[in-house]
């Protein structure tokens, strides 16, 4: 206790040197990429004069933190990250219902996301699942370019496909759930088993496979298409593929944390984040998702959701804890234990 006091004394003595700003008026948990979070923070401060303290963590980490802080919330609003943890937070009653006046400007899928969770979350962007390949490596190996999910199970790609582990990554869980919805439960698991034979590694993080493809550490990576496009824009020789059978998608979401200390500011941010001005910021930071405001600008490089064959993804069913547990344990016992 004595040392505790001492450390506090020194700590606070030095804080004054680093000139901290006044207490933040809005505590933002951000689960998108760093630049996007920063530009959202700065632009909101400029637009409203409200001071924002932003913490960037992946959606899984943020969800774990909100869960841990449930009895004494520190955050006000949680912006970005795939929809499942937002839905789960709604299910566990960690987030606050809110109907924004901006709703009539949004795509129907964004509103559907809100309605399925009792208005406790809302869609801010969406991105479709697909894969990307390293064009240099493909040419060097003289292989044909894959175009469909089914192509990835061909023997010539043995040991060249990478995807994330559905136990650890929301992206890979979306893949698993999409296959079950595209091919049916039996067909989907049969597909995952055949794919398993070609997988060189199940990564922990969802976007790691496309980074590995960019760096030449795998030929093909199964990821969200906007991540693949961003890798290409970053300068890597990666080609993005929209699978011919159709594909599933995620809805990046936003929620207000239940018991937020700055509820009015949280709602102001919520409304602002759904506006065209806020959503146009995405393109400035190479985020190629489709934004939820109908009027938001679109990039030519971004995959056009209108031309994709999107399945009718059942977020309520596949986002629920029970179905998730069931599919994951089935994948664990039936797929991941097979020899490669």
């Amino acid at each position: 206790m004595k040392r505790h006091a001492l450390s506090a004394a020194i700590l606070c003595g030095t804080t004054s040197l680093s000139a901290t700003a006044a207490l933040a008026d809005l505590n933002l948990y951000c689960s998108a990429q760093e630049e996007w979070c920063q530009i959202m923070e700065k632009s909101f401060e400029e637009a409203t004069g409200i001071d924002v303290a932003m913490t960037r963590k992946s959606s899984g980490e943020t969800f774990a933190q909100i869960q841990a802080e449930a009895s004494n919330p520190k955050g006000d609003v949680w912006w970005g990250g795939t929809g499942d943890p937002h839905l789960q937070a709604a299910e566990e009653d960690l987030t606050e219902p809110y109907v924004s006046p901006m709703r009539d400007q949004l795509h129907p899928w964004a509103i559907a996301q809100a309605e399925s969770a009792g208005d406790k979350t809302i869609g801010i962007y969406s991105g479709a699942l697909g894969f990307g390949y390293n064009s240099d490596m493909l040419a060097k190996a003289g292989l044909p370019a894959p175009a469909c999910w089914e192509d990835l199970t061909k023997p010539e790609y043995k040991g060249m496909v990478q995807m994330a582990n559905p136990n650890s990554s929301g992206t890979a869980y979306t893949t698993l759930a999409s296959m079950v919805q595209i091919f049916g439960e039996d067909g989907g698991f049969d597909y995952m088993k055949r794919l398993h034979a070609n997988i060189n590694q199940y990564t922990k993080s969802g976007s790691a496979p496309i980074k590995a493809a960019g760096a030449g550490e795998t030929l093909i990576g199964i990821v969200f298409m906007h991540d693949a496009v961003a890798t290409t824009v970053a300068g890597f020789p990666v080609v993005t593929v929209a699978p011919c059978e159709g594909t599933g998608y995620e809805i990046g979401s936003m929620s207000i944390i239940k018991g937020a200390r700055n509820m009015d500011e949280a709602k102001a941010f919520y409304d602002w984040a759904l506006s065209k001005e806020a959503q146009d910021l995405a393109l400035q930071v190479n985020a190629f998702q489709v934004m939820s405001n109908v009027a938001a600008e679109k990039s030519e490089k971004a995959p056009d959701l209108a031309t994709l064959k999107l399945i009718d993804y059942d977020f309520k069913k596949y986002g629920s804890s029970d179905e998730r547990k069931r599919l994951l344990s089935k994948w664990d016992t039936e797929v991941s234990t097979l020899p490669q």
């Binding site: 899984g60 774990a64 869960q67 559905p166 136990n167 650890s168 929301g170 890979a172 922990k204």
Partner: peptide, 11 residues
């Protein structure tokens, strides 16, 4: 780490 932050959320 991934049991806590991954898709399992299994503390």
């Amino acid at each position: 780490f991934f049991a806590i932050v991954g898709a399992q959320y299994d503390q």
